[in-house]
Amino acid sequence: MVAVEAHRPQTAAHALELQGVSRRFGGLVAVRDVWLALEPGERRAIIGPNGAGKTTLFNVITGELRPTTGTIRFFGHDVTRLPPHQRIRLGLARTYQTPLVFPRLSVADNLYLAIRGVQPWRLSLRRPRAEDPERVEVERLAERVGLRHALHALAGALSHGEQRQLELGMALASRPKLLLLDEPAAGLSPGEREQLTTLLLALEPEMTVLLIEHDMDVAFQVAQRVTVLHEGRVIAEGTPDEIAMNSTVQQVYLGGTQ
């Protein structure tokens, strides 16, 4: 049993540090006093039953939702009041539970936008030329997530699995320091899951990754540590083995909403 208290801040630059973060929706407390600290380069999984507040926690980290209480630090910076686009520019990237891509733009343009989003002159009035480094990067990214063949297809025409691949490519496009993945394996075929796991294991070692995952195979292979969320609260934290053995966690999963 690993106490949550052990991970209270030692304000040295953690990649991500949540201090007493809560988020309410009217009467519902979706996230309740969460303390969380990620070391740079750490791979952490968040698991928990439906409605546990996992996605809400992500939204609070990116700034899409303001926390009701608490502080969020990103490599030592207090980002609690920063809007999403500024947090992203600091080196944060995310994917969504249902893939969010721009359906009426091509795969290449989706990736290109993601690359330009963290560069200056992102609203340039000059069309990219074939020899621009960003164009080369688009192809490299497409290759990396297995979409080389679909570069000129409209994103809206891709299959669900391919949209997940594209979104992952978009998240990697900014070369983030912290990558947030919301159920990246959901809706994927077993083969696609395996590819995903391979890709995640091959990520640059200095990249910090926080992933929400229902699929324990993926979660436990990729993550060194696991945090369990239940009704907005962190109920356990530890290595995959510790979590698998944890009786509270077993109770939540067996007797919970599942």
Binding site: E64, H85, I88, L100, L125, R126, R127, P128
Partner: peptide, 29 residues
């Protein structure tokens, strides 16, 4: 027409479809 293929134009089309997604790519919508 030229604008459509520029970063400015692409981002504009992107925010038409999903402003929130554009903001989590680093754009000030």
């Amino acid at each position: 027409r030229y604008l459509a293929g520029t970063p400015f134009g692409l981002a504009l089309q992107a925010l038409r479809d999903d402003p929130r997604r554009l903001s989590t790519l680093g754009y000030n919508v």
